[in-house]
Amino acid sequence: MERDVGLMRDALVQQARAARTPTAQIAAALGVSTGTLARRFAPARLSRRLAAALHAATGPATDFGPTSASHSPSASATEEPGRLLAMALGELVYGTSFSGRAIARRAGVDPSYLSRMLSGERRPSWEKTERVTRACQGDVETIRALWEAAVRADSTRAAGGEARATLWGLLRGLHLSAGRPSPQVIERRSAGRVRGDDATALLRRELRPWPVVSAFVATLGGSPAEAMPLWSEAERQPAPERKEPSA
């Protein structure tokens, strides 16, 4: 709770600076002096706090098997690094005495692109990230760590999407090669290990627990060992939103 409040306070200070709120007003809202505000929310100090928050959010890499689904990283765990990077860059930019346009000019990036970097809409290359950091006289080493974590999180989300597509292709292929049995037939052939509604869900590309997927694959003549790594990676990521067909 205390950590979340601290991050919220950092974000509010960043937003206030982005809105060009006078320093005295920000300090008064926090109940501190302007000198204390400058020290506690200095760009380098904030970057270190964000780096610590990033470590707490992502934690050490752990290899969990399919039966440990409850320990899989959530969507917020893969989104947090990118959010923290954007916050850190924003604090660097708004913590200087220069305008955003001046920083963009010094860093050699388009002002609109810099704005998207700070909002988290764009994941900049390290070259551009470093130029912005140096233009603000920020801590390059800390920002580099945040940038690398954000890129790793992006790759994790992309891998999850590819795994889902491959898994659905495998399941549909097995279903087709087995003669397209109905969900009721699959339930009967699996001796009840795959219920009819679960079979229907899988054929509609809705993920189910590993024991169900394993039984589904085996019932249709496939290899659960082949499907397991695909399921494990797909299960780590949130399902994409399904678009309702237009009327």
Rank of each mutant, 00 (worst) to 15 (best):
S74M: 11
I103V: 08
T78I: 10
A201C: 03
V5C: 06
E244G: 05
R9A: 14
T142G: 03
P211G: 02
T133G: 01
R188L: 10
A218Q: 08
E130A: 06
D197W: 10
R193A: 01
P111S: 04
G192D: 08
R208I: 04
T96F: 01
W168A: 05
L170P: 03
R164C: 00
A69G: 05
W168D: 07
W147P: 01
A104F: 04
S155I: 12
V132D: 02
A86S: 05
A153Y: 09
P60D: 15
F41A: 00
E162H: 14
P224I: 00
E127F: 10
D139Q: 01
A150S: 14
A218E: 05
Y94N: 02
A56S: 12
P183C: 02
A201Q: 04
T200M: 07
T21I: 09
G82N: 05
P43N: 13
E80K: 12
F64H: 12
V212E: 00
R180D: 05
A27K: 08
W126H: 06
V213F: 02
A158M: 13
L171R: 02
A104R: 06
G31C: 07
S223A: 05
E2K: 15
E141K: 11
A107I: 08
F64S: 08
A107F: 12
L176H: 15
A75L: 11
R172Q: 14
G196M: 10
H71Y: 15
S47T: 13
S223M: 11
A57D: 12
L207F: 00
A88W: 03
E121Y: 12
L174F: 01
E162R: 12
A165H: 11
D139T: 06
I26C: 09
E206H: 13
G6H: 15
R236T: 03
S72A: 10
G192F: 06
W231P: 04
I143T: 09
G160F: 06
P124N: 06
L7P: 09
T21D: 04
A52I: 11
S97H: 15
T58P: 03
